[in-house]
């Protein structure tokens, strides 16, 4: 395992120290060492928070910042933050207008958020939630509530954060974030496994020359393991999973997000995006904006995810709003 670390058991704490120092213009520490907050949160707005396991940089702390999340709860690698951290994030973000907790559908996160919401209520803080479930490959469409949240969460935070920044009330922020995720579909293809630093060996396998379609951000098995394909065929496979599920149709205006899983060279993401764009254009789907890069990763996995979100006027305005965080800077 060729990794840069000290004691793997404290890697998250050490990472946070470096993160807070490097981005002291955007974020700052809070009393809970596992909660990071945005600097200079505008007064009087609805709070927006998220949280999740570490190892997905820029997610989750990387989306703490201006017009994005106000506070973020940080978990161990690939493990949900504590209920306490979600609660503290909510308290930090609350300005009496309530807090929107926008997180991903994983059982640990569900349990911890559920408890945090209960505890927050006792403490007089109203927390409402949106749980992202954009990963088409993780359950059939009639069981959408079982689907995982993946890179579509970035668009949910972008939209929710912008809505709150524009002065939306809690219900409006929740409604916008919910619409964002309802309009969003994702799929991933994994090319290599990843290794948790504390474990020291990959805990799943992707054989050389094969790829796993529909893989999750923690290596959760996908729909199909097949032979490694050309970028052109991979793009088609991804589009064929994502487009019919929503379904995205001719005339739709969309945001496209292609994220690497960590170790895939960024140049390859552009090759993939070029193929995806051609397929969408053929279908008459119009790309309003594209994000290509490492937006939601899984340690040193190779592979990529495709996320598509259908826009309406409100979503377009919110997506186009500037933002400033480590993971997403937009003029």
């Amino acid at each position: 395992m060729q990794r840069i670390m000290n004691d793997p058991d404290i890697i998250v704490d050490e990472m946070l120290k470096g993160f807070l120092k490097a981005h002291s213009d955007i974020v700052e520490a809070t009393e809970n060492p596992r909660v990071v907050k945005a600097k200079d949160i505008p007064e009087g707005k609805v709070g927006v928070i998220t949280g999740g396991g570490s190892g997905h940089k820029p997610a989750f702390v990387g989306y703490c910042g201006k017009n994005l999340c106000d506070a973020v709860a940080v978990g161990e690698i690939c493990s949900s933050p504590t209920a306490q951290a979600f609660l503290d994030a909510a308290k930090v973000a609350d300005q009496g207008k309530g807090v929107a907790c926008l997180y991903g559908n994983y059982s640990g996160d569900n349990m911890n958020v559920k408890m945090a919401v209960k505890m927050a209520k006792k403490a007089g803080v109203t927390v409402k939630t949106v749980v992202a479930n954009d990963d088409v490959a993780s359950a059939p469409k009639d069981q959408r509530e079982k689907r995982r949240g993946v890179a579509g969460e970035v668009l949910m935070w972008k939209v929710g954060g912008a809505k709150a920044a524009k002065g939306g009330d809690l219900d409006e922020v929740i409604a916008a974030a919910q619409k964002a995720i309802d309009n969003t579909r994702s799929v991933g293809i994994g090319l290599t496994p990843c290794t948790l630093p504390a474990v020291g060996h990959p805990n799943f396998e992707i054989k050389d020359g094969t790829m796993e379609v529909g893989i999750g951000h923690h290596g959760e098995p996908g729909i199909e393991v097949c032979e490694l394909e050309s970028a052109e065929k991979m793009a088609k496979r991804m589009v064929d999973v994502v487009v019919p599920d929503y379904p995205f149709e001719s005339g739709d205006e969309v945001v496209v997000l292609v994220s690497g899983l960590g170790a895939t060279p960024v140049m390859e993401l552009y090759v993939l995006y070029d193929e995806i764009d051609k397929l969408l254009a053929e279908k008459g789907i119009k790309t309003h904006k594209a994000y290509v890069g490492n937006y939601f990763t899984s340690l040193e996995m190779m592979g990529a995810t495709l996320t598509i979100m259908k826009l309406d006027d409100e979503l377009k305005e919110l997506i186009d709003m500037p933002a400033n965080s480590m993971g997403l800077k937009q003029f």
Binding site: S80, A83, M115
Partner: peptide, 12 residues
């Protein structure tokens, strides 16, 4: 467990 261990094990 509950306040320092996240994941599912903390709450469970």
């Amino acid at each position: 467990l509950f306040s320092e261990i996240g994941g599912s094990m903390g709450p469970i």
